[in-house]
């Protein structure tokens, strides 16, 4: 199940206030240069998007990413009781830290802009584990758990990468520095995690996995 970004519904780009000192002539030359004469208070505030507005595509991205990240925390919460693999536990701890911080950041961003952080709570986003997969993971122990965790988290992370790609392909999206940075950081971090988890899986015996979709095909693994 996958939710589409609401980008297509966006008709109006965020309002822009022009720089009084940056005339169209300046812009035509390729930039605006401001001599350092006037006192800061005499100059207008240049805000492409004020702190109180949110582009719908950006807001939707975060509203979807919050439950996506929250499921990752549900997964990492299973780790301490199920494996003593120290290297893996370190990896999981680092992922947990990253996802927890990002959830906090996204909630704050949405609340500041009057958006509901829980707008997509309970929905199954791209790459998220099905209830069957979660049950499968929770039921495993030891190396089988580690292998399964990595396989499902790779599936989960690749969903986040798809969500980030979709964001950048949406009209008007990621046009503010903070959203652009968030999405780019998510891409960079999760790509690295995937590489690490693939490396870890390569040291373990494979175990059966539950596919994302009901096994209509030949019962292929879920990642």
């Amino acid at each position: 199940m996958r939710l589409l970004l609401l980008a297509g519904l966006v008709l109006v780009a965020p309002a822009v206030r022009a720089q009084s000192t940056c005339t169209p002539e300046h812009a035509a030359m390729g930039h605006c240069t401001m001599p350092a004469a006037p006192a800061p208070s005499a100059q207008p505030t240049a805000a492409t998007t004020t702190a109180t507005t949110a582009h719908p595509a950006d807001a939707t991205f975060m509203q979807m990413m919050i439950p996506h990240h929250e499921q990752a925390l549900e997964m990492t919460a299973l780790v301490p009781d199920r494996t003593d693999n120290h290297g893996f536990r370190m990896l999981a701890e680092r992922m947990e830290t990253a996802q927890r911080d990002e959830i906090r950041w996204m909630r704050h961003w949405l609340e500041q802009r009057g958006q509901d952080p829980a707008a997509h709570a309970g929905h199954l986003m791209e790459g998220m584990l099905t209830p069957e997969q979660m049950a499968d993971l929770a039921g495993k122990r030891g190396d089988a758990f580690v292998y399964t965790f990595c396989a499902y988290m790779i599936q989960h992370h690749e969903g986040a990468l798809t969500m980030a790609r979709d964001l950048f392909a949406s009209y008007g999206a990621a046009q503010t520095a903070d959203v652009h940075k968030l999405a780019t950081d998510i891409e960079a971090d999760q790509k690295m995690d995937i590489v690490r988890m693939r490396g870890l899986m390569a040291t373990l015996a494979p175990v059966p996995l539950v596919p994302v979709t009901p096994p209509s095909s030949s019962g292929h693994s879920g990642h």
Partner: peptide, 9 residues
């Protein structure tokens, strides 16, 4: 390209 602040939607 033109250094404008309006972005590229």
């Amino acid at each position: 390209l033109d250094c404008g602040s309006q972005g590229v939607p």
